[in-house]
């Protein structure tokens, strides 16, 4: 129970980093949950993140799993609220102001400037997760096949991930 306050602090901070997508916060998510608070170890975090990619809805719902793990159902609720409320309130506010900002010339500059930075954050997030998930030629092969199938053929990733689980059960024994 005494973990609830750190959970709130960590996940409301992380939510402010998710510019461009949840992946942008992954390096900091790893640092805070694994290295600082020891709520999960790195393989567990990567497993939860990967399972979370299969869940529907906003793609960072894996945070609820960390909350559940650390402090039970209350933890799951607290983490989810901490993760969605700060940015949610900001969005609500800016959404209402946006109409008035229509003629503000810096609006386009902010949108245009943050675009490439958010792509950089996403790619840095991918690198962080790859450090734990890519361990040898088997995992490189799985990642490459999924990468190619999604980029070139726009295949739905769910069957691919299920297939990777089966391949993994044989390849990583």
């Amino acid at each position: 129970m005494n973990q609830l306050l750190p959970l709130i602090g960590v996940f409301s901070y992380l939510s402010l980093l998710t510019v461009g997508g949840g992946m942008a916060a992954f390096p900091e998510l790893k640092y805070l949950t694994v290295d600082v608070h020891h709520w999960v170890n790195f393989p567990q975090l990567i497993h939860l993140y990967s399972i979370g990619q299969m869940a529907p809805g906003p793609n960072m719902m894996m945070i609820a799993a960390i909350g559940q793990w650390v402090a039970g159902p209350v933890g799951a609720i607290v983490v989810t609220a901490a993760f969605f409320l700060p940015t949610g309130l900001l969005t609500l506010l800016v959404g209402r102001l946006w109409v008035r900002l229509a003629d503000w010339p810096w609006k386009a500059s902010i949108q245009r400037g943050l675009g490439p930075v958010s792509i950089g954050l996403l790619l840095a997030g991918v690198m962080s997760i790859a450090k734990g998930a890519i361990t040898g030629w088997e995992s490189i092969a799985i990642a490459a096949v999924v990468f190619g199938a999604i980029l070139l053929a726009r295949v739905n990733p769910i069957p691919l991930i299920a297939l990777a689980a089966v391949v993994g059960a044989y390849a990583f024994r």
Binding site: M23, H47, L122, L123
Partner: peptide, 26 residues
């Protein structure tokens, strides 16, 4: 082993999705 496979697949997936977005944004 299954989770290891899923994690490797997730790397391929998030990289593909990030690049798809990147090609439009950059």
């Amino acid at each position: 082993g299954m989770l290891h496979g899923v994690s490797a697949a997730a790397v391929g997936m998030v990289l593909a999705v990030s690049l798809q977005l990147g090609f439009k944004t950059l």
